[in-house]
Amino acid sequence: VTLFVALYDYEARTEDDLSFHKGSKFQILNSSEGDWWEARSLTTGETGYIPSNYVAPV
Score class of each variant (00 low, 15 high):
residue 31 S to N: 12
residue 30 N to C: 08
residue 3 L to W: 09
residue 14 T to W: 14
residue 54 Y to V: 05
residue 21 H to I: 13
residue 29 L to H: 05
residue 35 D to P: 10
residue 23 G to Q: 02
residue 11 E to R: 08
residue 52 S to R: 11
residue 35 D to K: 08
residue 2 T to E: 12
residue 27 Q to H: 12
residue 34 G to L: 12
residue 35 D to E: 13
residue 18 L to Q: 03
residue 9 D to H: 06
residue 24 S to I: 06
residue 37 W to N: 01
residue 34 G to F: 09
residue 11 E to H: 11
residue 56 A to R: 11
residue 5 V to K: 04
residue 24 S to Y: 14
residue 19 S to F: 03
residue 2 T to L: 13
residue 49 Y to N: 08
residue 56 A to T: 12
residue 43 T to E: 15
residue 32 S to W: 10
residue 57 P to N: 05
residue 29 L to K: 05
residue 24 S to L: 05
residue 5 V to Q: 07
residue 20 F to I: 03
residue 38 E to N: 07
residue 5 V to E: 09
residue 32 S to P: 11
residue 7 L to C: 07
residue 37 W to T: 02
residue 8 Y to P: 00
residue 8 Y to L: 08
residue 28 I to P: 03
residue 52 S to H: 08
residue 54 Y to G: 05
residue 11 E to S: 10
residue 16 D to A: 14
residue 35 D to Q: 10
residue 28 I to C: 04
residue 44 T to C: 05
residue 50 I to C: 03
residue 46 E to F: 07
residue 51 P to N: 08
residue 36 W to F: 10
residue 30 N to H: 08
residue 1 V to C: 15
residue 55 V to I: 10
residue 44 T to D: 06
residue 48 G to C: 04
residue 31 S to F: 15
residue 46 E to R: 09
residue 57 P to T: 06
residue 38 E to Y: 15
residue 15 E to I: 10
residue 14 T to L: 10
residue 29 L to M: 08
residue 47 T to R: 10
residue 41 S to R: 07
residue 3 L to P: 05
residue 7 L to I: 10
residue 17 D to K: 15
residue 12 A to G: 12
residue 20 F to S: 00
residue 2 T to C: 13
residue 51 P to M: 07
residue 8 Y to S: 06
residue 24 S to D: 15
residue 25 K to V: 15
residue 19 S to A: 07
residue 53 N to G: 11
residue 41 S to W: 04
residue 15 E to A: 13
residue 50 I to P: 01
residue 42 L to P: 04
residue 20 F to H: 00
residue 46 E to L: 11
residue 12 A to Q: 06
residue 46 E to I: 08
residue 31 S to M: 15
residue 39 A to V: 14
residue 5 V to A: 05
residue 38 E to T: 10
residue 19 S to N: 06
residue 52 S to C: 12
residue 26 F to W: 07
residue 53 N to M: 11
residue 53 N to Q: 12
residue 28 I to T: 02
residue 28 I to L: 06
residue 40 R to S: 06
residue 37 W to V: 06
residue 14 T to K: 13
residue 48 G to L: 04
residue 29 L to N: 04
residue 33 E to Q: 14
residue 6 A to Y: 02
residue 1 V to W: 14
residue 16 D to T: 14
residue 43 T to Y: 08
residue 23 G to P: 00
residue 55 V to G: 01
residue 10 Y to Q: 00
residue 49 Y to C: 11
residue 51 P to Q: 05
residue 29 L to S: 05
residue 1 V to E: 13
residue 33 E to K: 14
residue 9 D to A: 07
residue 52 S to A: 13
residue 16 D to F: 15
residue 38 E to G: 04
residue 55 V to L: 12
residue 36 W to P: 04
residue 42 L to C: 15
residue 48 G to E: 00
residue 57 P to L: 09
residue 31 S to K: 13
residue 32 S to V: 10
residue 43 T to S: 13
residue 56 A to L: 09
residue 35 D to C: 14
residue 42 L to I: 12
residue 23 G to I: 03
residue 1 V to N: 13
residue 38 E to V: 15
residue 48 G to H: 04
residue 14 T to F: 15
residue 55 V to D: 01
residue 32 S to I: 10
residue 28 I to Q: 01
residue 7 L to R: 03
residue 17 D to Q: 15
residue 32 S to N: 11
residue 16 D to I: 13
residue 44 T to K: 03
residue 47 T to M: 09
residue 33 E to A: 14
residue 26 F to H: 01
residue 47 T to S: 09
residue 20 F to T: 01
residue 55 V to T: 03
residue 41 S to K: 11
residue 38 E to S: 07
residue 13 R to N: 09
residue 41 S to L: 14
residue 51 P to Y: 06
